[in-house]
């Protein structure tokens, strides 16, 4: 418990240390999720277009 509370309080600098890690995690993870979801929707559209091409619609 002593470790846990001193870990979270960061020697009184919790308000600076944790937001730093949070911002980096949020931005980089957000970029990753955005990129992956973009890829998913692009693949879906391409598959649809190729299907249409095969059927010659």
């Amino acid at each position: 418990m002593v470790f846990a509370s001193s870990f979270w309080s960061m020697g009184g600098y919790a308000n600076f240390v944790w937001p730093s890690y949070f911002v980096v995690a949020f931005v980089l993870f957000g970029l990753l999720i955005w990129t992956l979801s973009q890829g998913k929707s692009l693949k879906k559209r391409l598959a649809l277009l190729e299907q249409l091409k095969e059927k010659k619609i």
Binding site: G11, Y13, V17, S20, Y21
Partner: peptide, 13 residues
């Protein structure tokens, strides 16, 4: 103190 831990995300970024 503990603020040095910001370095480990700041400098690589």
């Amino acid at each position: 103190g503990e603020t040095v831990r910001i370095m480990y995300v700041h400098v690589p970024s």
